[in-house]
Write a protein that binds this DNA or RNA. Structure first.
Length: 480
RNA sequence: GGCGGGGUAGCCAAGUGGCUAAGGCGGAGCUCUGCAAAAGCUUUAUUCACCGGUUCGAAUCCGGUCCUCGCCUCCA
């Protein structure tokens, strides 16, 4: 089954075809973190979905050029930097947040993007793009020195504004929802490409043909994506809130630069498919610090939850539906994954060193079908858990040969190349001799039918963090 | 005010015209066990916010009502 998903551009589900079908190469861009604070679980819902999309494209045999930018200059960063006691360099200020972001990123088992450009490394490319827009007469300078994008002139030259969101300019309530801007732009919806230097910026500014200043927010993504992926690429993803104005403005800047000032040129389409991810609710409410339902990923790690548990939960629902994140749900994730682990453990035990037969089970097919249908992860998980139940049954009935088990494990590996919830590294820690001694003592007590003593030892082990399961093959220790 | 999502079991969540309304958590029952288990199996919505309508047939389509969330401002 071909991959199909909802394209915000057409507002309908489309079959995905890369621009170069023969090469199977896919260019993918996602707006990355703004490094001024630790990323919260809402941010990571998006990054997790991006990772899932990338992994599934690879599962489908595509070769993905995955670009994720780092926004390391914006209002919040500038304010934070100027308020910080040691103003060494902007990079020194953002580096710890960037580092923390990737620690979280790795914990959640996200694959590193192919390229991770930083905004401040692409100022020349941004200036070049702004220059092109100035040349086309689409951008203009205000008396304070800032450069704005003129939506009116962009449209006059043949550009399309409002590709992602239907905009009715007459209905935008000026002053009520849109703050009257400190800059003197010609039109309400015009947006800034270059912000002229102001005293509060301190020492943070870059030179430009139009005076000292710093880039507007939207221009970085246009400049970086164009530089790395080209004027036109396949998929752009991000949170739903970014559709307007950020993504819309990216389109305007990028396509505007491909117009010609005399008019009559057709714009080169910026992106062929847009994917937007819905937001998260936490305990039924919008996440906010004042409500006390605001979690960074590290908060959850500190509460003892693992990356794979967070990953499972955040990836358990459909990407276009808002998802209600709860701690109760996270506990549920733990139980569900433990059941999966149990099944895999038994399969590994059974498979030993046997070779898989090489034929694919129904699991991979139904998983593929589920995700191919607009990334229906819920259906994907359902397929997986159906498989777990069936597998458990077959194990219990001793119907599986080692080769069968190896085959099932191979199918699982295929599915997990997308889900990525397999325990990272080898989490199987060494069992301390103290614990194995206790286990042996308990076995001796059981053999002597001294059950009071054996149960006491079991309780002691539990208090030390180990639980015993008596299986037909003997006792098994599990870490709590 | 404009635009766009939702309302499915105790909770989370698929399904968008027709087999028994997925799956996960929780609960219940059972099995293995000396007893247990964070082990396994089974079970758990005559019903899909409400009211009308279309249809042989609707959770799914149409009209209305109520509730809820998001975007239009920095925002995943």
């Amino acid at each position: 089954m071909d991959l199909q998903f909802f394209n915000t551009l057409s507002r309908r589900i489309e079959t995905f075809e890369p621009s170069e079908p023969s090469s199977k190469k896919v260019g993918l861009y996602c707006c990355g973190p703004t490094v001024y604070d630790f990323a919260h679980i809402g941010n990571f819902r998006t990054f997790l979905f991006v990772d899932m999309v990338r992994r599934f494209l690879e599962f489908k045999g595509f070769e993905v050029n995955h670009v994720m930018n780092i926004t390391d200059v914006d209002d919040k960063i500038i304010h934070g930097f100027n308020a910080s006691p040691e103003k060494t360099s902007l990079r020194d200020y953002t580096a710890p947040y960037e580092k923390a972001f990737f620690e979280d990123f790795d914990q959640l088992n996200c694959l590193r993007p192919t390229s991770i450009p930083r905004a401040t490394d692409y100022i020349p490319q941004m200036l070049e793009l702004i220059g092109k827009l100035m040349e086309n007469g689409i951008a203009y300078q205000t008396p304070d020195g800032s450069i704005f994008f003129s939506i009116q002139r962009y449209i006059a030259l043949g550009g399309k504004y409002g590709q992602l969101v239907k905009i009715n300019f007459d209905e935008i309530r000026v002053g009520e929802r849109i703050k009257s801007d400190e800059y003197e732009k010609e039109n309400v919806a015009d947006f800034v490409l270059w912000k002229a230097r102001v005293p509060s910026d301190g020492e943070l500014f870059w030179p430009s043909p139009w005076g000292e200043g710093r880039p507007g927010w939207h221009i970085e993504c246009s400049a970086m994506s164009r530089h790395i992926l080209g004027k036109s690429f396949d998929i752009h993803l991000g949170g739903e809130d970014l559709a307007f104005p950020h993504h819309e403005d990216e389109i305007a800047q990028s396509e505007g630069s491909t117009l010609c000032k005399e008019g009559g040129c057709k714009p080169t389409p910026f992106v062929r498919y847009w994917l937007h991810f819905s937001h998260l609710l936490v305990e039924g409410k919008k996440m906010s610090k004042s409500l006390g339902n605001f979690y960074t990923v590290r908060d959850l790690f500190q509460k003892g939850y693992s990356g794979r548990e967070v990953r499972y939960l955040l990836l358990s629902a459909h990407y276009r539906e808002s998802f209600n994140f709860t701690l109760e749900g996270l506990n549920g994730a733990r139980t569900a994954l433990a059941r999966l682990d149990e099944c895999l453990f038994k399969l590994r035990e059974l498979a030993g060193t046997a070779e898989p037969p090489g034929k694919q089970s129904a699991l991979v097919q139904s998983f593929d079908d589920a995700l191919s249908d607009d990334f229906n992860l819920s259906a994907g998980w359902a397929a997986l858990f159906d498989w777990v139940r069936q597998t458990n049954k077959q194990i219990a009935e001793e119907k599986l040969s080692p080769a069968d088990a190896a085959g099932l494990l191979a199918d699982w590996a295929r599915v997990d190349s997308v889900l990525a919830v397999c325990p990272q590294k080898k989490e199987e820690e060494e069992v301390p001799t103290e614990i194995t001694d206790l286990l042996e003592a308990r076995q001796a007590a059981r053999k002597a039918k001294d059950f009071a003593r054996s149960d006491a030892i079991r309780d002691e082990l539990k208090s030390k963090g180990w639980v015993i399961e008596d299986t037909p093959k003997g006792p098994r220790l599990k870490r709590i």
